[in-house]
Simulated assay, not measured.
Amino acid sequence: MSHELNPKARARLTASAAGGSILVAGLLVSLKLWAAWRTDSTAMLGSLADSALDLVASLATLIGVWIAAQPADEDHRFGHGKAEALAAMLQVVLIALSAFGLTFRAVGQMLQGGSVAAAEEGIAVSLIAIAATFALLAWQRHVIRRTGSVAIGADHVHYQSDLLLNLGVIVALALDQFAGFAGADPLFGLAIALWLGWGAWRASGEAINHLMDREWPEEKRTRFLEVLARHPELRGVHDLRTRTSGMHDFVQFHAAVDGAMTVSEAHRVMDELEERIERAFPGVEVLIHPDPEGRLTDQAERSDRSSLQSEELLPDIKTGKRS
């Protein structure tokens, strides 16, 4: 997965994906509103509720990625990246509410009975929804590969579930009206509700990781350490800390250099490290603390690695072990 885009390009891609979601969701809400009225189907009503929530969530996603793209200011020195995660969490809440409401409706219909009508029209609408969703998912996958956007990722989960949801509506309508299985519609409605609940659970994971400042994936950390290891004057690295906030990556670490270096020489090495990092990880914000070789910081001395010297940590750069 490649996320190394400049902020403007990333903002354009995420906005295009959010805008596409709004257009598709608006189309599907209109079609399914008509189909739900014509068929009186719980499964179709659940599909309508999901698409309506998709529309609200997509609007929240567009706002979230727009806010996240704003540059840092006096009140938000680390930028506005977490707006994406907040938008994703709003989507999770909406999906969960939709699942609860649909479950209530399906159980009620099971107890009261009833059948659907105009199945052909409901099936036609569901087929149109599937075609539109396939097109949107293809574009979202492209945007997620390029940007790693957590908000677009949560939106993508919505529309993945929509494929099965619309297939379920088609099967429920066909079984109910053409096969005489009157319980198919509420059963499929209940299954859709459970699927929505599972989707909400999955979508919440990455958003929570961003809000909680979780470390980069091990593969990305390893690649970062490999970039550092290529500098001939770097003797070791410790206290590496990483996090991602929306489109912004943040890194800080202690870099061990020759203890005989002057301040100017050590500063030159730090500048060169920053240039190498910028080439490999465009847009990342880096904070480096230089350490004379052979001396650990007070923080490191208090850690469970207190017996290690900075030069002994150099192999960690080569192997990519977590420092």
Results as ranks from 00 to 15, higher is better:
69 A>E: 11
94 L>H: 07
311 E>W: 11
111 L>R: 13
253 F>H: 02
300 A>R: 06
168 G>F: 00
183 G>I: 00
294 G>D: 08
13 L>K: 07
216 W>P: 07
269 V>I: 15
49 A>F: 15
318 K>C: 03
278 E>M: 08
68 A>H: 08
239 D>T: 03
48 L>G: 12
216 W>M: 07
203 A>V: 08
184 A>G: 01
28 L>S: 02
173 L>Y: 02
73 D>W: 10
37 W>T: 13
69 A>Y: 11
186 P>L: 01
109 Q>P: 00
136 L>F: 13
233 E>S: 04
111 L>T: 09
128 I>Q: 03
85 A>P: 11
265 E>H: 03
105 R>L: 15
151 A>I: 08
215 E>S: 14
225 L>N: 08
147 T>K: 09
210 H>Y: 10
252 Q>V: 01
145 R>S: 08
5 L>H: 15
315 P>H: 05
33 L>V: 13
257 V>Q: 13
260 A>T: 11
168 G>Y: 00
277 I>K: 05
152 I>Q: 01
127 L>W: 11
112 Q>M: 09
44 M>I: 08
213 D>M: 05
246 G>N: 10
209 N>C: 07
55 L>G: 11
313 L>F: 12
287 L>C: 05
302 R>G: 12
193 A>K: 14
47 S>N: 09
32 K>I: 01
61 T>R: 04
275 E>C: 06
219 E>C: 06
191 A>S: 12
285 E>T: 13
182 A>Q: 01
144 I>D: 06
107 V>P: 08
65 V>S: 04
93 V>K: 10
160 Q>T: 03
